[in-house]
Design a protein around this nucleic acid. Structure first.
Lengths: 117, 117
DNA sequence: AAGATATATGAACATATGCACATATATTCA
DNA sequence: TGAATATATGTGCATATGTTCATATATCTT
């Protein structure tokens, strides 16, 4: 891997930062979590479920996706344990799994709104 | 677009959720913000810069990328106004642009760690 | 000015992602 | 049991993404 010829500019800083950063697995999991929020439709889904528990049918209607597409996304969110669900007859009701999720959503919104100056 | 035959299961809820969700543009911007965190290497970059201001050379060393790859990623982060930079001679020093970014990072970490029960 | 070094950028390529479509599964109701 | 409905899943495709490699730009040094 090419590096700067001066191997490091400030190796003390580099060492400090190296120890500050989380392990690879944690970084990977964090990236995966954020990736879940990295699509407008999924943000919409998450927001919707933060507002109200919804069945797949109503959810798809709200976010404007086919039930199939919504279901696919819900699967990812389920795998990441971001949403939980309960079956009620033929319907399956989804909701957020965790208060953290709402906080992340709120943080994101805040940043975006503040940035629009 | 196919929908459930029963047009809506609970149209009152649907209406409520519809009005609760942000406009398309906001959703899009939020997704873009989160997408920036949606890659392990970028999380690493952001974390590194949250710890210490770094030149591209030292940053690439910390995150284990080529300076070129790091520079590409820094450009995206710059476009999203997540990082700022100052030139010092041949070197360019990057740092986080905003406290929100660190908070998002912290929130993400917290979720991931709590989840590892 | 010329060479050296740090950073940036463009293009190409491999991989990942999100959706549509077809089909499967599960539940209800007749 | 069989038809109807809600949800889930597999596959294929178009597009997005991240990296590498080549090259450009900027700054310093001599």
């Amino acid at each position: 891997m090419p590096t700067c010829d001066v191997n490091l500019v400030d190796s003390e800083k580099v060492q400090k930062v190296r120890t500050a950063i989380a392990d690879t697995d944690t970084l990977f999991r964090m990236a995966e979590l954020f990736k879940a929020f990295g699509d407008p439709n999924r943000v919409k889904i998450i927001w919707a479920l933060a507002t109200e528990e919804l069945c797949v049918c109503d959810l798809s209607s709200v976010v404007g996706m086919t039930p199939s597409a919504a279901s696919h996304q819900l699967r990812s969110l389920r795998n990441l344990k971001l949403v939980k669900f309960r079956r009620a007859g033929q319907m399956v009701y989804y909701s957020l799994d965790d208060k953290h999720i709402e906080m992340l959503l709120a943080q994101g919104l805040e940043h975006v709104q503040e940035d629009r100056r």
